[in-house]
Design a protein around this nucleic acid. Sequence first.
DNA 1: CGTTATTGTTTACGCGTGTAATCGTTAGTT
DNA 2: AACTAACGATTACACGCGTAAACAATAACG
Lengths: 122, 122
Amino acid sequence: MQISDAESIVMDTLWERSPLAAEDIVAATAEAQGWQEATVKTLLNRLLTKKAIAAERDGRRYLYRPLVQRSDYVHAASTSLLDRLFDGRVAPLVAHFSEQRKLTKKDIADLKRLIGEIEDGG
Amino acid sequence: MQISDAESIVMDTLWERSPLAAEDIVAATAEAQGWQEATVKTLLNRLLTKKAIAAERDGRRYLYRPLVQRSDYVHAASTSLLDRLFDGRVAPLVAHFSEQRKLTKKDIADLKRLIGEIEDGG
DNA sequence: CGTTATTGTTTACGCGTGTAATCGTTAGTT
DNA sequence: AACTAACGATTACACGCGTAAACAATAACG
């Protein structure tokens, strides 16, 4: 199953801290997204149906927590994009940003350090 | 406007070679995708409406060509993913694949060479 | 010149999504 | 015990998308 864009905003909240009550998730997302609380409730329900989150009773309310790992979600989305656009390879994506002059000095420094770490660390 | 997944398959064909007649696009995509030619026709029309492609008459048929560059499309999609999942930075994406052990030796070699080129070439 | 084939245009339809209101149920409150 | 507030569940609805059939127009062929 697929986590939609709007749903992923809710997931972000739960990935950052969980378990949370619906109220907390509303507080964390509604302002930033301009959502009514009913919207958040709907998204929570859809995520439950999709088994992307679980709810456990806590008195009269539920506390929600993620069932899917953020890293799994990130990986699926990244792999899908890489496969579709860059033949599954990371290097061509970096090359693309390089060609577009979208790599800052910091990016380049980070990448350089990273490659170094990968090479000796494994 | 947004180019959908199915539409991007048609765009791929046109990015590879253009202009093409509908017949050619059907030939190139229908088999691989399991599409009826009617489906391709619909996608072409939606792409025309979105101004993602243009058509010029060629006798009784039309020849289609892309109006949006592949690199623009790729850039929009990549930037969107990077922004949503990696705080807009390339290095964290590479780090993610590294953590997941999804970088092959070739990837690492490519990246190393690329960083080298960027550093002295600009 | 009428019939057929070709190619583009219009219409269709179910599903997921974004967005939200309303309903129902349960727990407090008086 | 009745009333109200809180919270989750159900229902709603328009829009884009994937998928395709039906229709229309035009050109080719006999």
